[in-house]
Amino acid sequence: MQKIYPSAEAALEGLLTDGMTLAAGGFGLCGIPERLIDAIQASGVKDLTIASNNAGIDNEGLGKLLRTRQVKKMISSYVGENKEFERQFLAGELEVEFCPQGTLAERMRAGGAGIPGFYTKTGVGTQVAEGKEVKSFDGEDYILERGIRADLSVIKGWKADESGNLMFRKTARNFNFPAATCGRVCVAEVEEIVPVGSLDPDCIHLPSIYVNRLILGAPYDKKIEFRTVREREAA
């Protein structure tokens, strides 16, 4: 069983169909599967529904797929800082399902864990609750949210071993874990692939069972959305 593919294009071979649903990892531009997004863009696949916390920014991340009009619908919690998104949304060309961030993460986690729905307090009494079942537990109202099962998950990790055991780095973990688990197939890109036995089994963040295909995406030129620094105090 060989999980390592020579390129993003090769790793996505046979997995892309028009109208499919994708789950993508990343928060802002942090931990986004940029090689896989580039390959999806190049494939020309269209009418995509994408569950992702954000929609990239202009011409970065999923913003690239918006620019080429390959996206039919986004399921996201926050889509600011993206002019093309705004234009398509206001023109009615792009469908958006706003989903609270924690609910989106849990919908992916639940979908991947075989849980088709769950009750949550988040969004009770707001627009998010419209059309959803409300159930009272111990005197408090909760709404029913559905788990997400995607046709394909695309994620970005830090290090993986050849079997697909994977580690993330710092806050780049974010949605990559829940997104990985909810796809019928998960393709991961990483910065480094090491031989099996090189990673401490106690320190694996995403066990290999969730990773079907793997590519080495390096070298990366990671983008920072808002660079904030402090001055060194004088000695």
């Binding site: 996201s76 919690s77 926050y78 889509v79 600011g80 705004e86 949304f89 206001l90 958006v96 706003f98 609270p100 961030q101 924690g102 609910t103 988040t122 969004g123 707001t126 998010v128």
Partner: peptide
């Protein structure tokens, strides 16, 4: 323009 609720509702 609606940007979304992020994590505020949670």
């Amino acid at each position: 323009m609606i940007k979304g609720m992020g994590g505020a509702m949670d």
